[in-house]
Design a protein around this nucleic acid. Sequence first.
DNA 1: ATTTATTAATTAACATGTTAACAATATGTC
DNA 2: GACATATTGTTAACATGTTAATTAATAAAT
Lengths: 156, 156
Amino acid sequence: MSRAKNPTELGPDALLPHNTRRSLPIALLRAREAVMGHFRPMLARHEITEQQWRVIRILAESGKVDASEMADKAFILAPSLTRIIRSLEERGLITKHKDADDGRRVLLEIAPAGMRVIADVSPESRAIYDQLEARYGHERVEVLLDMLDELATLGD
Amino acid sequence: MSRAKNPTELGPDALLPHNTRRSLPIALLRAREAVMGHFRPMLARHEITEQQWRVIRILAESGKVDASEMADKAFILAPSLTRIIRSLEERGLITKHKDADDGRRVLLEIAPAGMRVIADVSPESRAIYDQLEARYGHERVEVLLDMLDELATLGD
DNA sequence: ATTTATTAATTAACATGTTAACAATATGTC
DNA sequence: GACATATTGTTAACATGTTAATTAATAAAT
């Protein structure tokens, strides 16, 4: 049904870069929500948030990591990471130590309790990801990842 | 330099769906930050956040919109949108009214002050987007948008 | 050795994302 | 008309994103 026009309404693209239906930032948000929407309830059942999961996954994968490296790999801003680290440490899922060689640095490691979370969550996470790849297409996921990576490194 | 292994460290993909370097959710976040990282400082100079910009842009484009429709188009959760609407209304950039036909609904409209923000921000926003498209490739942006849209509508 | 600059992480403050619960209103059934 | 169910938007509470400032430690310059 046609929408009633008001005096301030402009036509598509008038004064605007693109109509919002084809906005890249919103498209990226929608796509991300479509993916994470499957993982989030599963993670919630294990009482862990997406960001917390990213942190402990990276520790499981990479071993001892300093906070700056973690912020980069998990793509979490430093102030947010500080809070997440505190929460995970309080729950006993990770440990945190000062770097002996550089007192400014904080070193993170997964704790045995964290490894148990990894062991519990990973099979379900894998199943969700496999299903997504099956539906979207494994090759197409690779192509998409390549395109996203090029977009992410455009400014470099 | 090789990283010292600890007893809890697992090899790549062991128990994990994919190594985090090729994680789709993180790739989508990085790509989005690469795009928004150009817009955010410009929007901050106009004293408006990305989400607020999305809301007034949609109002400029679509005229009168109800809150549910706005939440969908701007891709903002309802509780977040409630706060954003309040903020924008307090600043006089938009107006909010009850729908005469349905007392549950809230109708939003851009105000003249909001149109001035649109007029001020749009040229800069367009310039940033054009530059991004020039570097990434206009056709490739279209292809990426199509792939993202397919990913976003996968569960439908 | 001292001073200055830089780096790493934290803190503060505010905005938004997220889930659950709630209030008001509309719709459907009997 | 009464009642049950569904919808729309708000509120509460907590997590994370974001920017600026701060603190502690290290590196570089003098």
